[in-house]
Design a protein around this nucleic acid. Structure first.
Length: 556
RNA sequence: GGCGGCGUAGCUCAGUGGCAGAGCAGGGGACUCAUAAGCCCUUGGUCACUAGUUCAAAUCUAGUCGCCGCCA
């Protein structure tokens, strides 16, 4: 029938200077995982990679505050990320870091190739320098008075008080944040990426990407039409990938140029781990589609800068789609890690199961709008939708069947029109979710699956097998068989979203292996098939806890 | 300040030219297999605001206000 496709899935690289929060999950990781599980179930060849971003100024600042090294901070959070992916069921084929030798080699190869082709050039700029510390200072290492609002603790990149971005040189009475001395501005040499050279090629390419989400496409087009400026890709710092040019030993390649290359370096690392070093080519040079799952703040890096680098390098696949999500607000307010206005993933996982969160964030995914997470809504959706509609459906069908038919799938009699229609709807749902997931319409896909659960509840109510069991055992068996077929459709359709409960249901129905192995189709259980003793898929949560959870927000 | 997006029922969100929608919450009912779950009926809207285009606007255009992001 269909030829298997190759699907490369690159997911945003989380910054290893703090724990993951719900914004990360809703913005990129959950959608990527849903997409990966869906394609694997379809039988397609999937590679999903990412890793922790270990470089950059915030990590060095945090390390200095804690009296430790950037590497230690990065290692600590990297370990935590790996645990969180495991527990949440985010199924990376490889989750590495930007701290590997392999990554540095890939970055330096890109750097030298673009340099040789003339897409990278040297220039001199003025940069803050602290004579006391004898070092150049990144923007965030300088504090002074805001020239616009006179706020005193303004950093060199942006004013927290009035929100205006600042040119470090404009700060009134600037001071080094390390020693408090007055910085000077000195000349320093840096490398620049010649983005302007790609303007026309990028514009022509982007105009053809009509399958991109409208906000991604519009934003990118406008950005390009405004004209691209060359950007500095090196900094006067010591934490990062070294510049492979002599005379630049004390400088490093800046994160935004370096981190995106993780997509490629992670693929090469994956190929080595499976013992087939050249295998990376199947996802980068072969007939493979590249998807990048990121938050909206990252759009220009993935639709402009990264494609420009790939065009300059030549011979590597450009992104096929960049299904960027919007943001998640928490209880109607903007998420803020510094004010602890966030729901932290390790904290969530210490008290609750992964599937209820995956359900809420799927149904309310910020696909085209910012959407809101509130604890009240989380408890409500768990209790009144996930448990009531789906969990209870599974439980009522399985416990009744188990009790009355010796724990086996009942032998159906002839199907009447209502039963045929019910099975038709199950098949239609598999097909609909297939199309929706293929096009990255995650929210619609899970809603259409939940609709099938509602239909099944309605069907059962009409058939009332608990009544017919008394006079017409065959009729009862038939309607339960039909309901079980629907459950089997649901465990497939919901598997990408709710992998843990789908696996349980798969086993309750008497199947071996995983839902993924059944493929993206309706796998009807055989009449007489031995089922496993059922237990509830989900549990109701005490809604009073929502108040307690909300109180945690914002407390430090 | 420039650019892009968003603003729809009490709540969370669909809906991009053709009679304003879903889920939940609220009200009523019949049932009882099931996690007091499920099913049927039902209340509820100035589609942020203003002006336009059109036979017809939540939808297209211009402006205003508010929120989010990017850039300077």
């Amino acid at each position: 029938m269909k030829v298997a496709e190759r699907i490369y899935i690159g997911v945003a690289w989380p910054y290893a200077n703090g724990p993951l929060h719900l914004g990360h999950i809703a913005g990129a990781y959950l959608a990527a995982d849903i997409f990966a599980r869906y394609h694997r179930t379809k039988g397609n060849e999937v590679l999903m990679v990412s890793g922790s971003d270990q470089h950059g100024t915030p990590i060095t600042i945090k390390a200095e505050q804690e009296g430790t090294t950037p590497a230690e901070i990065a290692a600590r959070y990297h370990k935590q990320f790996l645990e969180n992916w495991q527990t949440l069921g985010i199924s990376f084929d490889l989750f590495t870091t930007t701290g590997t030798a392999n990554h540095a080699a890939v970055v330096q190869d890109m750097f030298l190739t673009l340099l040789k082709k003339g897409y990278i050039y040297k220039d001199t700029v003025k940069q803050a320098y602290c004579p006391q510390c004898q070092r150049f200072l990144p923007d965030r290492y300088i504090e002074g008075t805001c020239p616009y609002c006179a706020f005193v603790g303004t950093r060199g990149d942006q004013c927290d008080q009035c929100g205006k971005p600042i040119n470090t040189i404009e700060l009134i009475s600037p001071a080094c944040r390390i020693c408090g001395d007055k910085p000077e501005f000195r000349d320093t040499e840096h490398f620049f990426l010649k983005l302007s050279a790609f303007q026309d090629r990028l514009l022509a390419w982007v105009r053809k990407q009509t399958h991109w989400r409208p906000n991604v496409l519009n934003f990118t087009l406008r950005y390009l039409e405004d004209g691209l400026k060359d950007r500095a890709i090196t900094r006067d710092i010591t934490w990062g990938v070294p510049i492979p040019v002599s005379g630049f030993e004390n400088k490093r390649i800046y994160v935004w140029f370096e981190a995106v290359l993780g997509y490629l370096s992670a693929t090469k690392e994956w190929a080595k781990t499976i013992g087939d070093e050249e295998r990376w080519r199947t996802f980068w040079q072969g007939n493979s589609k590249s998807y990048y799952f990121i938050g909206k703040d990252n759009i220009p890096f993935h639709t402009i800068i990264w494609p420009a680098m790939l065009m300059g390098y030549e011979g590597l696949n450009l992104p096929y789609d960049v299904p960027s999500n919007e943001f998640l607000t928490i209880e109607a307010k903007k998420l803020s890690t510094s004010r602890n206005w966030a729901v932290w993933v390790p904290d969530y996982l210490s008290r609750y199961d992964p599937d209820p969160l995956r359900y809420l964030l799927s149904v309310n995914m910020p696909e085209s709008n910012d959407t809101d997470f509130s604890w009240q809504e989380f408890f409500r959706k768990n209790n009144d939708e996930l448990v009531a509609t789906y969990g209870n459906l599974v439980n009522r069908v399985l416990t009744f069947t188990f009790r009355n038919f010796n724990g086996c799938v009942p032998e159906p009699g002839e199907l009447d029109s209502a039963s045929r229609e019910m099975i038709g709807k199950a098949e239609a749902t598999i097909k609909t979710t297939d199309e929706l997931l293929y096009g990255c319409h995650f929210k619609q896909a899970i809603k259409s699956a939940m609709l099938l659960a509602q239909e099944a509840n309605r069907y059962l109510d009409g058939k009332a097998p608990w009544k017919t069991i008394k006079q017409d055992r065959q009729d009862s068996a038939t309607s339960l068989y039909v309901a079980i077929v629907v459950l089997s459709a649901l465990k497939t359709a919901l598997y990408p979203f709710l992998p843990f409960s789908s696996q349980k249901l798969h086993e309750f129905l008497g199947f071996r292996g995983t839902p993924q192995q059944g493929g993206w189709k309706l796998n009807s259980p055989q009449p007489g098939q031995k089922m496993a003793s059922p237990s509830p898929l989900f549990t109701k949560l005490d809604e009073e806890l929502a108040i307690e959870e909300s109180k945690r927000l914002g407390s430090l």
